[in-house]
Amino acid sequence: MSLIDLANPTRFLALSARVLPWLVAATIILLAIGLYQSATAPDDYQQGATVKIMFIHVPNAWLSMFVWGVMSVASLGTLVWRHPLADVAAKAAAPIGAAFTFLALLTGSLWGRPMWGTYWEWDARLTSVLILFLMYLGLMALWRAVEDPSRAARAAAVLTLVGALNLPIIKFSVDWWNTLHQPASVMRMGGSTLDKAFLIPLLVMAVAFTLLFVTLHLAAMRNEILRRRVRSLQMMQAGRKAA
């Protein structure tokens, strides 16, 4: 199997139909294991049971960035290699990425509630994720604003790549802005101090959520391909010679 094989949408549909059931099964099993491990993980001596939000929050936060990475590669595919499935992949990923980012924000604010006493704190990390969320929404608005998907594809690809280049700058600026205003008073979950009892469930959950993304992404790509086929069939029907 190579990229050339995948380039043909019909081949892609056939192949993904075969792979999808296995992916769904793997996702469900890993999610079940991960959730069980998370539920049975010990409480944190400082944060108590709320630490368990981490097992959902961290995978979502990781995916919020990972999906933008996937979209960036797909955008390169659109602009450089003109891969016929690249813009389908980019378009299908955007709403899923936005959903993961939203969940990261939601779980982050729920996690922050007992720490900060408010649902929202302009913490550098959360703020960066919020900006990422805005960029996802903007990208989705762009896809929606142009009716012809192949025309929207290039604009969206440029925006995605510019976003990918800008994200580190935004992250840096937000960190700088945040430390300028307040010394680090909020929680710091040092990665290295994480105990094994937390680390293993977290890794399992991260893999499970990544699989979840791959499954949803494949399904969304199939939908998008079918949607475009319906569209071109409709256009053919409209162009049919009037009686």
């Binding site: 408010t118 704190e121 703020t127 805005l134 929404l137 903007g138 802005w177 945040n178 307040q182």
Partner: peptide, 26 residues
């Protein structure tokens, strides 16, 4: 192609920009 929800997105963006100008003092 309709722009109803872009207004909400703009609203969200404007509000998010404010703390960057004013500082994150709650």
């Amino acid at each position: 192609g309709g722009g109803a929800l872009i207004g909400v997105l703009f609203f969200l963006t404007v509000v998010v920009l404010m703390p960057f100008a004013l500082g994150p003092d709650l």
